[in-house]
Amino acid sequence: MSAAAPPKIRVEGLDAWFGETHAVRDVSLDVRPLSVLAVIGPSGCGKSTFLRCLNRMHELVPGGRATGKVTLDGEDLYARGVDPVSIRRRVGMVFQRPNPFPTMTIADNVSAGLRLNGWKGRLEEIVERCLRQAALWDEVKDRLHSPATSLSGGQQQRLCIARALAVEPEVLLMDEPASALDPIATARVEELMHELKARYTIVVVTHNMQQAARVSDQTAFFYMGELVEVGDTETIFTNPREQRTEDYVTGKFG
């Protein structure tokens, strides 16, 4: 991927608050298209809040607000008149804990976003395609109409990924998607991220530095709400510019 390609997401001077708490401070960075950006940092460094600013989920939290500029393919997400609902269809999200809809079957979970948005049409093919993309098809193809809650935690998380893919987003935000999973399930999700980046731009928040090193092309290090450093993953982990980054990635703190 050449560095000259226009960024998929450009963040300029982003600040975010919870009430009086300044959680993200003046962050600017670019995300390349069809790449994985890992966001690392100690807990409470604002990395999850940053992620939630990218699809305007942050403002749903009581007291949450954000200022600055976030552009998706050059279009400002925070401009006047932009409907956050339509942004969230373009920028999908996967959460820390698997959260399938408990009242729905596996198939219905995948198609939930389409059905709730009033999409009429054949769903079977979409369900199959998304489950295949999420590497879950073979495990569930014989029980598409069982409740989603009958799946294991790792399967549920891949189901949530399939559900996010069904609305055909351009970007996928993942908030510590493997932190509630066991090592085998984690490996599957990481593998999946490799496959998905052929079609989607991915931003993943993780507290696990090995995971960041394994899955990402670029890494951003956050500390106390500030972006300390962003760069190619290899550089960040082997030869960072900033002392704080080096201390963190070598385990001296955090």
Binding site: V85, I87, L116
Partner: peptide
């Protein structure tokens, strides 16, 4: 988290309330 999941799929608040939260 269910409400969040629905909102993140681009479902409006009212539909999320009716179809996800109240359904559950």
């Amino acid at each position: 988290s269910l409400r969040e999941a629905s909102l993140a799929l681009g479902v409006p608040q009212w539909k999320t309330s009716l179809r996800i939260v109240l359904r559950t």
